[in-house]
Computed example of a mutant assay.
Amino acid sequence: MTDGIFIHFDRDQGKVKSFSTVSGAKATKLTIVLELTDSYALSRVLQELHEAQHPPPPPTTPPHKARSTPLSRAALPAPHLGLPYYGDDA
């Protein structure tokens, strides 16, 4: 998923009541008033807004440890069976 916010709901689940903008010296403030009739659509919109306001931290991977012992024989895959192949006409 991209790093952005997407507010999506079907037209039968709600509508945009109004929107307005106010320009400032450094930023523009956008105000959107939504009227949602479906509780599932409301929860999705609220979840998207919460994730935009508080983005999840990037996943951290633990540092790789150097192997102290070589791989054991049991960890290797089994060898292929030595079965003869006579073609498709057999």
Rank of each mutant, 00 (worst) to 15 (best):
S68E: 13
K29I: 13
L36T: 02
F6A: 14
I5R: 07
S18D: 05
T31L: 09
A78C: 06
I5W: 01
D89Q: 06
Y85R: 07
F9Y: 01
A27I: 06
P59V: 01
A90R: 13
L83K: 08
T37R: 10
Q47E: 15
E51D: 15
Y40G: 14
R11Y: 10
P58H: 05
D38C: 06
P70F: 01
K29Y: 11
L30V: 06
T60W: 05
I5A: 09
L71M: 10
S20C: 01
H50G: 08
Y40P: 00
T69D: 11
S39G: 10
A41Y: 00
V33A: 12
Q53S: 11
Q53R: 11
L36Y: 05
Q53V: 05
L71Q: 06
T60L: 12
P84C: 00
H64T: 15
P84F: 00
L34F: 00
D3F: 10
V22P: 00
P62R: 07
F19E: 02
T61Q: 09
P56D: 02
F19L: 09
T21K: 02
L76M: 05
Q47S: 12
Y86T: 07
R44K: 10
A27Y: 08
P56F: 00
A66F: 04
F9Q: 04
A90T: 11
A74I: 04
G4S: 11
D38R: 03
P57Q: 08
L71R: 09
F19D: 07
P70Y: 01
A52I: 01
F9M: 01
H54L: 07
D38Q: 07
G82I: 11
